[in-house]
Computed example of a mutant assay.
Amino acid sequence: MNPCDSHSPTASNGLTAQSTGREVRQAARSGRLSGHTSGLAREQVQANLAILPASLAGDFLRFCQRNPKPCPLLAVSEPGQYLLDELGEDLDIRSDVPRYRVWQHGELVAEPTDLREFWRDDLVTFALGCSFSFEHGLLAAGIALRHVQQGRNVAMYRTNIATRSAGPFHGPMVVSMRPMKAADAIRAVQITARVPEVHGAPIHLGDPALIGIGNLARPDYGDAVEVLPDELPVFWACGVTPQSAIATARPAFCITHAPGHMLVTDRLNRHLGLG
């Protein structure tokens, strides 16, 4: 699995932290936005995607239910449904994500910005909670997030923590990391514990080797950020975990978002308790 495209949002696309979910989706649909969505539309809930043939949807649903920390379910579509009104007005799952990944037999074969040529009537879309949503609560509490300050994608790592399998789906948990001072880390635990819909509290603080991460400077996905001497690396379960499970299951065909390139919905973070 190659690292994701980590282009930062630029002023030329007209998007900011105050943009609406629909504005971000329209920018993706028109091709103005093909980079990551970290720091954009901070009021809106962002979602990870897994799009699978209906024949595998039952097993994947059980995988999500058995692994709610990395795979918190926000919505599941009917087969072939691509207009997801429950997540947003005029939301077309085929075009409204900045970048997708298309997989065949576990191999990455394309990273398109539009899915129309790949769409099938048997595809079921799973929308999963994303840590970019809880970042709204952290920023509102005055907790600095270095990747947001630097306009980078969050750093993500494969761990040695096994997920609970369901059918062909299994594999290691993926985590996202944010460096914080100890007092901020304690506050971050308190804030994110209230929102299991977007991964909840961290799964680990401190020594990355204890969860199988050898080098913080070399994330498996996203962009590395410095951890200063007076900071702790804080790790949350990450919605890229399903991509790891899908790569292990090697389905004949499936689609995910590119890491960090999220579906921005019309749902509001404050409705999750992140006001």
Score class of each variant (00 low, 15 high):
W119D: 03
R120M: 05
R120H: 09
D121H: 12
D121C: 04
D121S: 14
D122I: 10
D122F: 08
L123R: 02
L123H: 01
V124H: 04
V124R: 08
F126W: 10
L128D: 05
G129A: 03
G129R: 04
G129L: 01
C130K: 02
S131C: 13
S131W: 00
S131P: 01
S133R: 06
F134G: 00
E135A: 03
L138K: 08
L138G: 09
L139N: 03
A140I: 05
A140N: 12
A141L: 06
A141S: 14
A141M: 07
G142N: 08
G142M: 10
I143K: 04
A144P: 07
A144V: 13
R146I: 10
H147I: 11
H147G: 09
H147C: 13
V148P: 00
Q149H: 09
Q149E: 15
Q149S: 14
Q149A: 15
Q150L: 15
Q150H: 12
Q150K: 14
G151I: 12
R152A: 08
N153T: 14
A155F: 08
A155S: 14
M156L: 09
Y157R: 02
Y157W: 07
R158P: 02
R158Y: 06
R158Q: 11
T159C: 01
T159E: 00
T159P: 08
N160F: 00
N160K: 12
N160V: 03
I161L: 15
I161G: 00
T163H: 08
T163S: 15
R164I: 12
R164M: 10
R164H: 14
S165V: 01
S165L: 03
P168F: 10
P168G: 11
F169I: 03
F169D: 03
F169V: 05
M173F: 00
M173C: 08
V174W: 04
V175C: 04
V175T: 04
S176V: 01
M177E: 03
M177C: 14
M177D: 04
R178K: 12
R178Q: 10
P179M: 10
A182W: 15
A182E: 14
A183D: 13
A185T: 13
I186V: 15
I186P: 01
R187S: 11
R187G: 01
R187E: 13
A188Y: 10
V189L: 11
V189M: 14
V189A: 10
Q190S: 12
I191F: 07
I191A: 10
I191W: 08
T192M: 09
A193L: 13
A193K: 14
A193W: 03
R194H: 09
V195K: 00
V195A: 07
P196I: 09
P196L: 07
P196Q: 03
E197N: 00
E197P: 00
V198F: 06
V198H: 03
H199V: 03
H199M: 02
G200D: 05
G200W: 02
A201M: 12
A201L: 05
A201F: 08
A201H: 04
A201Q: 10
P202H: 05
P202W: 02
P202N: 00
I203F: 08
I203K: 06
G206L: 06
G206A: 04
G206N: 05
